[in-house]
């Protein structure tokens, strides 16, 4: 089934879910004649209609183009596409890990880890240059955002850890 038809079906489902979510928006006497659910329902309706048009367009273009020899090429493309999606998903996992670790390891350490991991991901191997880049980069980001701009970034477990070590010292 071509991508366009699948996209259309998924979007119709999304329109349905969105409609039902809009339907449970609490009613308020202050909402006026349109209501808080007015525009969302209109959008759900519009998305549903447009998605059906997309499906129809996909079906029509499918019926008017039956080149059998193209299928092999499309299959090869699909393998490449699938691999590409996996790579993108892997990068996404790396960035999610950064976000999960941030409150525990603190901004500067998490930044260093992010820079080295993403650097290795794109470079395909770990080099001394990437290691140095990660260390210097983390320090530069710390200087810009924490020292210069005064943004309160997560400090992680370090202050508590150092405080505990300091108090346990005889």
């Amino acid at each position: 089934m071509p991508t366009q038809i699948i996209s259309g079906v998924v979007l119709v489902a999304l329109a349905g879910i969105y409609w039902f979510q809009a339907d449970v928006i609490p009613k308020s006497p202050m909402s006026g004649s349109v209501g808080a659910d007015g525009l969302p329902k209109l959008l759900a309706f519009a998305l549903g209609g447009l998605s059906l048009l997309l499906i129809a367009q996909g079906v029509l273009s499918r019926s008017s183009s039956p080149p059998a020899d193209i299928f092999e090429e499309t299959e090869a493309d699909r393998v490449t596409e699938r691999r590409g999606h996996l790579m993108a998903a892997a990068l996404l996992v790396v960035t999610i890990l950064y976000t999960v670790l941030l409150p525990y390891v603190g901004y500067t350490v998490a930044m260093g880890l992010l820079l080295i991991t993403v650097g290795v991901f794109y470079n395909r191997r770990l080099t001394l240059g990437i290691g140095m880049f990660a260390v210097i980069g983390a320090v530069v980001f710390h200087l810009i955002f924490i020292t210069l701009l005064g943004v309160r970034m997560p400090e992680g477990i370090w202050p508590d850890l150092f405080a505990a070590l300091h108090t346990s010292r005889p």
């Binding site: 901004y107 930044m111 794109y122 943004v151 970034m153 997560p154």
Partner: peptide
């Protein structure tokens, strides 16, 4: 590789700066 890693660092630092929210 350096540039892209740096962009990720910039995005996350910038976005966190907006509301201080993970």
């Amino acid at each position: 590789a350096y540039l892209r890693a740096g962009i990720f660092g910039l995005i996350f630092s910038g976005i966190y700066s907006v509301n201080g929210s993970e």
